[in-house]
Design a binder for these strands. Structure first.
Lengths: 217, 217
DNA sequence: GCCCGCTACCGTACGGTGTATCCACAGATA
DNA sequence: TATCTGTGGATACACCGTACGGTAGCGGGC
């Protein structure tokens, strides 16, 4: 079975899922495929091109959700699929927003969201659409990144409060006890129970409401 | 003149501004300071701790904006300062949202935004506040990242349309000419003239409107 | 006064990375 | 059969983060 861009991307994704983006190296991918490291350069010109390839594979999965009933359902579907994909492939969140995503499937996702948003009330011309797409994508990127990093730190420290206080505590609790950050302290102490998915959807609808309810120029 | 965390962070920031985050290495920092690479480990335990240090220095500048007239002016000030900082230090955008920002100045910024938002109409309890802070930060992170990556690609390809078509063109224009991405094509062709700062502020107010105008539970 | 132990500094070395270059070998062609 | 071509692989380079061992200075116990 000869090598191919698809096979390379697939094993790279598997390794990145397991070891994270830092643990991913061309040598490991090549070893996993049973070839020398330099063979990969016959299919990919850079490591970053390989990363682009991986990203577009994930976008392919996101693009599968396709069109839903209305523009709002479509946008919600794409956003949730993006979040799901990032939770499955945390390295995807690391790459999100870091470089232009121009693969065919990424463009398909972009087209689907833009087309859906162009049908939203309050989006009248191209400038409105540009802004709406920008706002939505910015929120998705930021929210997904934040959730992934929070999950990472929660995993490394342990979820329960005791372990949390013990690991981040020595520094963070000392900081919070200075009294200089009362609101943050309240958020950390009282606000940990919120469901992540609900919060994501809630804020997403907030954004969409803000876009559609825009006051007339 | 002895070494110090501040001096190390300052030269690291200078180098990162010049060469980007990929071009930053402990060896270069040490050479710039006229010491051996291992000297840095007397002041910093990791490279990532050094990155945290650099990030917090930038947050110090952001924290300087302080409180403004009302909650909305304060939030706008912080968001704009964050954007300005990221445009001055593009590596800051790369780090944004990638790891928990727990430095004292980052906490100060978080406290200021949370305190401001807690005074916003429509934010009634801690859960509301948590969601509002999450939405706002997500947008800021995503928007700043997107703007920085766009600026980078614009810089590498050249701003004028001819150079753009020539560099990204061979692939992107071919893609757009397939007709599969009509909305994206319209955005790329017609929508390039928008002012970045205006767009940022516009979307920011959109988000804030969405937060405050939240319909009652 | 002398020696010991301790601390603060420093250079070297290791295992890893992405990638350029050279080399051997197989197959096809003259 | 001899040469050419092109493909797969190994080696090599520059660089990275960082573990480790040594060395010099200095304060304290006898």
């Amino acid at each position: 079975m000869p090598l191919s861009r698809e096979k390379i991307a697939a094993t790279a994704i598997r390794l990145a899922d397991a070891d994270g983006l830092d643990g991913l190296s061309l040598r490991k991918i090549a070893k996993e495929l049973g070839v020398g490291p330099m063979r990969l350069y016959d299919y990919v010109m850079n490591k970053s091109e390989l990363l682009d390839l991986m990203v577009d594979v994930v976008y392919a999965r996101i693009a599968e959700v396709g069109q839903r009933g209305g523009w709002r359902a479509t946008v919600l579907g794409i956003a949730q699929a993006t979040r799901d994909a990032a939770l499955d492939h945390e390295w995807f969140a690391d790459l999100l927003g870091g470089r232009p995503h121009l693969g065919p499937h990424a463009l398909a996702v972009g087209e689907a969201t833009a087309a859906a948003l162009s049908a939203a009330p309050g989006v009248r011309d191209i400038d409105d659409l540009q802004r709406a797409v920008g706002a939505l994508n910015a929120f998705i990127i930021g929210a997904v990144r934040k959730e992934v990093t929070e999950r990472r730190t929660a995993r490394s420290t342990g979820t329960d409060e005791a372990a949390f206080q013990a690991s981040l505590g020595p520094y963070l609790t000392r900081m919070l006890k200075t009294g200089r950050y009362p609101t943050v302290a309240r958020l950390v102490i009282d606000g940990a129970h919120l469901n992540a998915e609900e919060t994501f959807n809630h804020n997403l609808t907030t954004i969409l409401d803000g876009i559609t309810r825009r006051s007339p120029t």
